[in-house]
């Protein structure tokens, strides 16, 4: 339920308009992500229904009144509860690469080496982009949220490549 709690987190800093919420999410919280407007308003509706946020109408002189959303005490509690619990990490263990290897290994004509080679190429292409973007992030004034995401991308891709080496070694022993 990450969007729901992300919205509670943004509102904990102060009341925001729906549009401001969306742009804070996309530009500050989770850079280079997209959150569609429908999703923001649907989530806000549910948060209103559950009593976690309420809206306030702010009068503006030269423009129509602005409807802003703010956290309720209950919403603040829910945010605290979320932050205080370990996340369920999605390790994506039974991923597509694994599945392809298991299938290829069983088929008489199954080319598991070919599968590994293809997956490795894809991972290296992305790691090439990620390591150099990460290097550039240190030279330029890049927001911390972006550098941390690049770090995570680099480490995950490295892990995937290391795992592919293990697969190659183990499958090679099975069918030399």
């Amino acid at each position: 339920m990450s969007v729901r709690h992300a919205i509670l987190g943004l509102l904990a800093e102060g009341p925001l308009h729906g549009y401001e919420l969306r742009s804070a999410y996309e530009n500050e919280l989770v850079p280079q992500s997209r959150l569609n407007a429908g999703q923001v308003y649907a989530t806000l509706d549910r948060l209103l229904r559950d009593g976690l946020v309420h809206h306030e109408v702010v009068a503006q002189n030269d423009r129509p009144d602005k409807k802003v959303f703010a956290l309720t005490a209950q919403g603040r509690d829910e945010l605290g509860r979320w932050l205080g619990h370990a996340s369920k990490v999605d390790l994506d263990l039974r991923n597509e690469t694994f599945l392809k290897l298991m299938v290829a290994r069983r088929l008489p004509e199954g080319d598991w080496r070919g599968v590994i080679a293809l997956e490795r190429r894809g991972a290296f292409e992305r790691l090439h982009q990620a390591t150099q973007a990460r290097a550039r992030a240190d030279r330029d004034a890049t927001p911390l949220s972006i550098t941390l995401l690049l770090d995570l991308a680099v480490l995950k891709l490295e892990g995937l490549l290391e795992w592919l080496d293990r697969c190659e070694e183990a499958l090679g022993k099975e069918t030399p």
Partner: peptide, 27 residues
């Protein structure tokens, strides 16, 4: 042998690495 493609700009790299779009929440 693998020739790696030229590097994109930082923001484009992030955008091209999937997994950043918000997941749909359950109703």
């Amino acid at each position: 042998e693998q020739t790696l493609p030229p590097v994109k700009s930082g923001a484009d790299v992030l955008a091209s690495l999937e997994g950043l779009d918000a997941p749909e929440d359950a109703p």
